[in-house]
Simulated scan of single mutants.
Amino acid sequence: MSQIQIRQIQQSMIYAKSTQQLRQVSCLQPTLMRIRHGEKHIWLNEQTYIARAGDILIAPAGLQLTLTNQPDVHGYACEVLTIAPGLIEQFRQNHPAAVQTALQQAPRLCEKLSATMALLWDELFNAIANNEPVELIEHRAAGLLLALTLSGFATALLSHRDDTVAQRVQMLIMLEPAREWTVELMAKQLNLGASTLRRQLQQEGQSFREILERIRLNIGLGLIQTSKHAIGQIAQQCGYQSASRFSARFQLQFGIKPLQLRATIN
C-alpha cells in the first residue's frame, strides 16, 4: 500500500521544453506558483490570464483550471508551493486584522512579485529544499503569507471555507491514493454509515467515485511533471492496477496522454 506524506507546506518544480496543454486541472490544496521561465496561460470563468516570468499565481483549493505552459527560449520553469489548509487557518488566527482587511478586496489570480516578496519566496523555497527545521519553514511561510496579505494578493487563499465531508474524503484519499478505497471503507474511516456518506456527498454536489478519480489523476499529473518514475509505477502509486487504464482516464480528464505529457518535459 502506497502512502503519501502530506506536509504543511511542500515545494516542487514544473519544467517543459515544449508546449503543455492541460484541461480540468484541480488544485487539491491551496497553491502558489511562481513563473521562472516562459508563460502560463489560464482560462477561468471565460477569462484569460497570462502569468509571465516573475509573476505569481494564487489558487485556492478546489479551483479547476484549463491551462497552457508555454516555454520561451530557456524553456518553461515554474516553482510551486502547496500549503496545507491548517497552516492557513493558523495564519488567519494569528493575523486577524490583516486578514479582515484583505478579505474586503476582490480575489486576484495573477500578480507581479515585488522585490520583498521575491526574497521571502526564495528564502522559503530554499529552506524547504535544504530540509531546514519545520518550525523555521513554517515561520518563513507565515512571512510570505503576511507579505501577500498586506499587498492584497492573498484574498483567494484566506477566504474561509467550511470543513465539508467532501474535503475530509479528499484528504484521506490524498494520504493513501493507492488504497483500495470503497464507500464502505471511507465511511468507516469517517465514523459514518455508507448510506449517510453517499447522502451527505450528494448534498454537497459530489460523489465518492468522482472525488476518488479526481484525486488520483491529479496526483498522477503531479508525479509525471515532477518525477522520473515510469508511467506504470505512477499508475500503481495512484491506485490503478493497469497503466493502460490510467492512461485512458488521464487523457479523458486532461486531454493529453501521460507519455505525451512526459515527452514535453524530457
Score class of each variant (00 low, 15 high):
I6H: 13
R7K: 12
Q11Y: 08
S12N: 10
S12R: 09
M13D: 12
Y15E: 10
S18D: 14
T19K: 13
L22N: 04
R23V: 08
R23G: 05
L28F: 03
L28N: 01
Q29T: 10
M33V: 11
R34V: 07
H37G: 01
H41N: 11
N45R: 09
E46C: 10
Q47F: 10
T48Y: 15
Y49I: 04
R52V: 04
D55N: 12
I56F: 07
I56Y: 00
I56E: 00
I58H: 03
L63P: 04
Q64H: 08
L67M: 15
L67V: 08
N69H: 10
Q70V: 15
Q70W: 13
H74Q: 15
G75T: 04
Y76A: 00
Y76T: 01
Y76V: 02
V80G: 04
V80W: 07
L81T: 06
I83V: 10
Q90S: 14
Q90I: 08
F91A: 06
H95R: 15
A98W: 04
L113M: 14
A115N: 14
T116W: 10
L120Q: 08
E123N: 14
L124T: 01
F125R: 05
N126T: 15
I128Q: 00
N131F: 06
N131V: 10
P133Q: 04
R140V: 05
A142Q: 09
L144R: 04
L145I: 02
L145S: 02
L145N: 01
A147R: 11
L148T: 00
T149K: 03
F153L: 11
F153C: 14
T155K: 00
L157M: 11
L158D: 04
H160F: 13
H160L: 14
D162I: 11
D163T: 09
V169K: 01
L172G: 05
L172R: 08
I173M: 06
M174T: 02
A178Q: 10
A178P: 06
R179N: 09
V183D: 03
L185P: 02
M186L: 08
M186D: 01
M186F: 02
A187E: 04
K188T: 12
N191S: 13
L192G: 02
L192S: 04
G193P: 03
L197P: 00
R199M: 11
Q203Y: 14
E204C: 03
Q206R: 13
Q206M: 12
R209S: 11
E210G: 09
E213D: 14
R214S: 09
I215L: 07
L217T: 05
G220I: 02
G222H: 08
L223C: 03
L223P: 02
L223R: 04
I224H: 00
I224N: 03
Q225T: 07
Q225M: 11
Q225H: 10
I231P: 00
Q236H: 11
Q236R: 13
C238D: 05
G239W: 02
S242I: 05
S244Y: 13
R245L: 12
F246V: 01
L252H: 14
F254M: 07
L259C: 11
L259F: 13
Q260F: 11
R262V: 07
N266E: 15
